[in-house]
Amino acid sequence: MEIYGETIGSRLMLGTARYPSPEILKEAIRASGAEIVTVSLRREAAGERAGQKFWDIIRETGVRVLPNTAGCHSVRQAVTTAQMAREVFGTNWIKLEVIGDEDTLQPDLFGLVEATRILSDEGFQVLAYTTEDLVAADRLVEVGCRVLMPWGSPIGSARGLNNVYGLRAMRARFPELTLIVDAGIGVPSHAAQAMELGYEGVLLSSAVALAGDPVAMARAFKLSVEAGRLAFGADPLEPRDMAEPSTPVLGQAVLA
């Protein structure tokens, strides 16, 4: 998968919060094969670099850190957090979240477009956490975003892909863009389904972190993402109304 000109081997990205321990987080990252993990600056730092020890543990795994602006509710907050993240993590990548609704944690698409415009102008490479809204997606692309991350369903809800039609339409509209399903993935079949739709990758967090055995679940997601991608490339069947026997019955004796 390509992210702003860089080729990334794994199509699975992991969040890093709420694991039972950093040790288990490290094992889960390894088991998932993820090459990119997201880190929330706001929540885990409480002050600049105050989360350094935790970030160091993540870095030991050799993965790339994609800072995010989780928990930001305004353009200004998100932009400031992104600027701080660039300094702390030394990367122009930012997973941009501007939350518009406290209950559903739905992105504020207006704020998201504005923040993307500001950050793109400042040289950031924005991975925008958005919905499947095509108009918002067009605007995001206009202001410089090249990686769109539509939600599957609300963050942490584990409901899977709420709007398969919308995600399919987005894939069809932006065949050249890197599209990653972010949020709402609960079980590996959800991730496989996103991959079967032709998405480049998935990003998930609590599905692994809060599982009873995060390391086993990380591996399950690794396999499902690979399976879904393979299936996408293998041109799967369309659903049919009529049954079609998989073994020809021609010539078989008809017993009345």
Binding site: R43, E44, A45, A46, G47, A50, G51, Q52, K53, F54
Partner: peptide, 11 residues
Amino acid sequence: MVESDAPGGVT
């Protein structure tokens, strides 16, 4: 539970 060594007060 916050991964942080910031000693300040409660947010």
